[in-house]
Design a binder for these strands. Sequence first.
DNA 1: TAGTGGTCTAGACCACCAA
DNA 2: TGGTGGTCTAGACCACTAG
Lengths: 240, 240
Amino acid sequence: MALPVSTAPKYYVLKEELRVLAADSEPGATLPPERTLAARYATSRTTVRQAIAELVAEGVLHRTQGKGTFVAAPHPTYVRQLTSFSEDAGVQNLDTSSRIISVDVVPADALQAAQLGVAPGSLLTRVERVRLINGEPLAHETAHVPGDLGDIRTHLDEHGSLYSTLSRCYGIEIAVAEDTVATRVAGPDEARLLVVEVGAPLLMIHRRGLDADDKPVEWTRSVFRGDRFHYFARMNRASE
Amino acid sequence: MALPVSTAPKYYVLKEELRVLAADSEPGATLPPERTLAARYATSRTTVRQAIAELVAEGVLHRTQGKGTFVAAPHPTYVRQLTSFSEDAGVQNLDTSSRIISVDVVPADALQAAQLGVAPGSLLTRVERVRLINGEPLAHETAHVPGDLGDIRTHLDEHGSLYSTLSRCYGIEIAVAEDTVATRVAGPDEARLLVVEVGAPLLMIHRRGLDADDKPVEWTRSVFRGDRFHYFARMNRASE
DNA sequence: TAGTGGTCTAGACCACCAA
DNA sequence: TGGTGGTCTAGACCACTAG
């Protein structure tokens, strides 16, 4: 909870010292091993690890078992724009790509049915992907589209973009998008997929795509790495 | 980093058991003390605390030194809508209020100057507030408006809303809003203001308000409790 | 005063990586 | 193989809350 105003905990003092140390180093530089830091700062390894853990969560450091702890490189930050959602893509001169994890047809659960306005149990096509930026994981995305679009995988391989695939191959046009943004900490599965630590802060976005008649045609749950992602929206008050 | 696929760490197993235990209890129920849990699950207090710490970060539990660990009450979730930003307010039947921390006039730093399109060093009126929901802290907000609006405090006390105050008392009308949403972990100061633990996930939103001529007239940095806040935006593709 | 969570210690063993 | 981070232990003392 709140820290005592008078004396900061030792791990916190160390954390701030390490933050300065990291700022003064080149990105990618190796930090001294935990045991060395413990000796140097006359403390225990547990305390050192608590300090490092919070800096890792903030994206200042990263570490790999067996290798060491490093100053995090300034990674490109992907900005998702709701302003003109031109496929969210390369506007920023970033090399974006996708890795398809699975494509299957599943019955809708209660939440999916409600979001898509279909009966629970009716069939949805589910596309699960990892979005990459410069070859590194940025987001884990699961899209749901009503109906059985069993052959969508081939078309996705061609175009990459889900929206353009829906438009070109199935005549599904998305006219309106609704985004809900929340924060979330990484569980073991997400941590593995996104190559972050368990407990790292993530941004979770649920996007619902509607057609010109305001009928829901797509519902996607995306989980982004918090350290490499911003969300942007611009809204005219008049357009209310 | 990634967990071994075969065996989950003990703290993680315990974490999920405690999650179920919490779900089966009434909100506000007291969890057994850490030392008791350590004995019951044949583990050390350190391991118990690691499990509890992650659940606290997720908002499942909360704890107070000297009192105990409790099942978190299902708190109202405030949803900020960019759709029709009717002051972001009571649309949700929630009792919202503000506590003004400070109102002062400061010279613009580089970032503020860039965002507001003024010269660095020129005067800004800065309003720092804590936004409350049902009397509990939801967000820490710092607004910047170009110029010296020294008497704004009295007007704020009257109206509460910054936007309506700007409109009624200064003729400043905000026509367009640009929001940037990012995730962030709580430092000691934010933890104290928002009554969360250090390391808790937060949502940070930078909002820039523009007038009808697209001239920036307001720039606000808000930090929301991640466990009680969602951000929502709806966008017409046509309106591009 | 007794009991709680907050911090810290000095080890231990395991899993992983590179030479 | 040696060194790294990952997990875990069995304690200790401090800070805070309550009766």
